Computed example of a mutant assay.
Amino acid sequence: MNIAVLGTGVVGQALADRLSGLGHQVFMGTRNVADSLAKTEADRMGNPPIGTWLKEHPKVQLVTFKEAVDKGGKLIVFAMNGQVAKECLHAVGEQLLNGKILIDISNPLDFSKGFPPTLFVSNTESLSEQIQNQYPTLKVVKTLNTMSNPVMVNPKLIEGDHSVFVSGNDTAAKAKVTDLLKSFGWEERNILDLGDITTARGTEMILPLWLRLYSKFQTPFFNFSIKRAQL
């Protein structure tokens, strides 16, 4: 299957690597291909620049946002900072987004006042809802935004059962995304469909807690596990 991954950072790289390894043709989208390839410095976490990463992943093609969505079939993974979501999708254009599935793994984090960040959308709306409302024919599915990228693509990094949440208005789109999650190694019993896209408010607002747990543990290798009493 052809898949577009929008974003060249560590999250985009993790998703593109996993999808490519599963046999999908991945088109990685960026604002400007030449500018992205010109970067030579590792990021603040020590991850390689995208040009170096692409040499190690020759099956992944780096193209513009618009080209990635055009070539990427029916499935788009948005793997960028939530603050640039609308700018990125505007660059793609409504016509190309029409009828496609957007897996939104971003969060509305505002680092303008330092760490820990605040949420620039919360309580009465979510970033995913804003995207869905702006592009009503796009099938937005929120998932994977409540964990670090290594856990997203390899849940077995954490022993035992732990949870991934799914939100979206379109039942068929959520089923398609659920199948993809299963291919990553997520067990069906741990994939929790919360309901329509408004439920993304809850998962986006988990991030302040996640960030404080990260500060406490000094590792990203943890996740939330939802347990229910057997009454």
Rank of each mutant, 00 (worst) to 15 (best):
L97M: 08
G93E: 10
L96S: 13
V140H: 04
C88I: 11
N107T: 01
F115R: 11
L96V: 12
V166H: 06
E129K: 00
S128R: 08
L119G: 04
S106R: 09
I131P: 02
G160Y: 02
E125N: 05
L75P: 02
T146R: 00
S167V: 01
G73Y: 03
E94L: 07
K86H: 15
I105P: 02
Q95T: 15
C88F: 06
P136H: 06
F111H: 04
V84G: 13
L144V: 03
L119R: 03
I103T: 04
T118S: 14
Q134A: 13
N149P: 15
T124Y: 01
S163E: 02
S148Y: 07
H162S: 06
N123Y: 05
S106V: 02
D161I: 02
N107E: 07
F115K: 09
K142I: 07
S148M: 08
V92Y: 12
F165N: 08
F111Y: 15
T137M: 06
V77N: 13
I76T: 14
V151N: 08
K100Y: 12
M152L: 10
Q83M: 13
N98V: 01
T137C: 03
F120Y: 14
F111V: 01
K156N: 10
L127M: 14
I105S: 13
V92F: 10
D110N: 14
N149E: 10
E94W: 11
D110C: 14
S167C: 15
N107I: 00
E129C: 02
D161Q: 03
L89I: 11
S126F: 03
S128M: 07
S167M: 01
E159N: 12
Q83T: 13
F120L: 10
N81S: 15
I103A: 02
K156M: 04
L96M: 06
Q83I: 13
H90S: 14
V140C: 07
G73I: 10
N145E: 09
A91D: 14
E159G: 12
K74R: 15
G93M: 14
T118P: 05
T118R: 10
V164P: 00
N81G: 14
